[in-house]
Amino acid sequence: MPKPGQVQTRDELTEHEICSASYVGSGEHKVTRWWGGLPQAWLDAGGVASRPGRQQTTICRLASEAERKQATEWVRDALANGYFRYGDGDKTFPKDIWYRDATGQFWIGRCINSVSGEYKGWPVDEVEKREIFD
């Protein structure tokens, strides 16, 4: 008998669940005022976003309400097309999603509420994309 996989197989997300998912963003990836309020990215002495003792913070340039709505569509598209990966402990929604926008930019989404389907996200370059998915 083969060993069970690390992550259980799951039922597909329903259309209702996909339509309820949203992009809420995160101040830790913002350096300008955004729909959620003031930016919270930590800037070092040189003005570069970083987190002391951790990897460099990637800045998300989405700040307007229109951009939030667009990112919500990206989240829903990623979920509808299977561009996601569940992790141990995930509830209804998968922890990691990804999307490639019309300009070719890759975006990573991280679920911050696995029951209601709320995501934050940020752009990644090709090197970061390979590090995450390889």
Rank of each mutant, 00 (worst) to 15 (best):
P2Q: 07
K3T: 15
K3G: 12
P4L: 09
Q6P: 00
V7E: 14
V7D: 12
V7I: 13
V7R: 14
Q8Y: 01
R10P: 00
R10E: 00
D11H: 12
E12G: 15
E12V: 09
T14K: 07
E15L: 14
E15V: 14
H16W: 13
Y23F: 15
S26Q: 10
G27N: 05
G27Q: 02
K30Q: 09
V31G: 01
V31T: 03
T32A: 07
T32Q: 07
R33I: 11
W34F: 03
W34H: 10
G36K: 02
G36Y: 04
G37R: 05
Q40L: 11
Q40W: 14
Q40P: 00
L43D: 00
G46K: 13
V48E: 13
S50M: 15
S50K: 10
R51T: 04
P52T: 05
Q55S: 14
Q56F: 04
T57S: 02
T58D: 10
T58N: 08
I59Q: 04
I59H: 02
C60E: 12
R61W: 10
L62E: 10
A63T: 14
S64H: 11
R68W: 11
R68S: 09
K69P: 06
Q70L: 13
A78Q: 02
L79W: 11
L79V: 07
A80Y: 11
A80H: 07
G82K: 11
Y83H: 13
Y83P: 02
F84M: 10
F84Q: 06
F84C: 08
R85F: 07
G87V: 12
K91E: 04
F93L: 04
P94E: 05
K95A: 10
D96M: 06
D96C: 12
D96L: 13
I97S: 02
W98D: 03
W98Y: 02
R100T: 13
R100Y: 10
D101Y: 00
D101Q: 03
T103M: 04
T103C: 08
G104V: 01
Q105L: 02
Q105D: 09
Q105M: 03
F106Q: 08
I108A: 14
I108N: 07
G109I: 06
G109M: 06
R110A: 09
C111A: 09
C111N: 15
I112T: 15
I112Y: 03
S114L: 10
S114I: 03
V115W: 00
V115N: 15
S116Y: 13
G117P: 12
G117R: 08
G117S: 14
E118Q: 15
G121K: 05
G121T: 03
G121S: 13
G121R: 08
W122K: 09
W122P: 05
P123G: 06
P123I: 05
V124D: 05
E126L: 07
E126S: 06
E126K: 07
K129A: 08
E131I: 00
F133M: 01
